[in-house]
Design a protein around this nucleic acid. Structure first.
Ligand SMILES: [Mn+2]
Ligand SMILES: [Mn+2]
Ligand SMILES: [Zn+2]
Ligand SMILES: [Zn+2]
Lengths: 135, 135
DNA sequence: CAAGTACTTTAGAATAATTCCAAAGATGAA
DNA sequence: TTCATCTTTGGAATTATTCTAAAGTACTTG
């Protein structure tokens, strides 16, 4: 073992969320290993497998809260297909259309130049690049 | 008046679709004026306003068929928010997060360099750039 | 630590977008 | 015209997500 497990309760308090049993369990699964792309359903299944009771509605609530708190980023790639991404840094995605897989790629090698300025009255929020590929 | 109205029936036959009354009506609304971003609902409302009876299911069927035939492109920007775009040429989008508006911008001024090669076993299908902005 | 209050979770109902179904209708090849 | 094939349609079904109101938990304060 290389390190102690992070103090998720403290992290949650930091962003203004009470460290409830289910929020901590969700955080553990989400942030315990490398970066991940999950759906509400897939995350729900995973957490239930850890024997901690969580309702699907709670998973949705929590994912939305984590997103709003900046802990997660939401990526929409197809109708009815919304992923939550634990990688909140600058990066883009490959989306494999056949099976719905999502893969990160770093944005530091990618240059996007010549973007027009935002429509008047608006300010830039984020630039999403999705590279769609097929098998 | 500057020109005769396009022969939508012929266009439809060209892509292997029977020129039914509703498909022609939908094509007319979709392609009769400049480029558009429509939802199934909005298009349904528009066509019904022309006094041609169309079921919402038919609008969905037709939009999917037109998309598969390459007459339309589908743009997904938010969960539950799918637009069909009559502009199938190379271009990208501004998405105004507050109100869901979508605006085109040409891709010819934009340079995207340094994209990594697609994951093995896949070939490139399309690159979508969505610039999210806020009011 | 005991209370009390505010915040959370939850099951299930509700919504919204989209697809499916089987029957009725339209299209076009012969 | 005839007939097989393709389309349309209303309504039910599906899927993703949100809402509701009641029951449970976390923090503040005394
Ligand atoms: Mn899912
Ligand atoms: Mn819509
Ligand atoms: Zn990612
Ligand atoms: Zn467009």
């Amino acid at each position: 073992m290389t390190g102690t497990s992070p103090d998720y309760a403290a992290h949650l308090r930091d962003v203004g969320l009470r460290p409830t049993r289910q929020r901590v369990a969700l955080a553990r699964v989400l942030f315990g290993s490398g970066h991940r792309h999950v759906t509400a359903e897939s995350l729900h299944a995973e957490v239930k497998a850890t024997r901690i009771p969580v309702a699907l509605a709670t998973v949705y609530n929590t994912l939305n809260q984590f997103r709003d708190a900046g802990l997660l980023r939401e990526v929409v790639v197809a109708p009815g297909r919304s992923y939550f991404d634990t990688n909140t840094g600058h990066h883009h995605h490959f989306f494999v259309e056949d099976d719905g897989e999502l893969h990160d790629f770093p944005s530091d090698k990618v240059t996007i130049e010549g973007l027009p300025s935002p429509p008047k009255g608006t300010r830039l929020s984020r630039v999403d690049v999705v590279v769609r590929v097929r098998r």
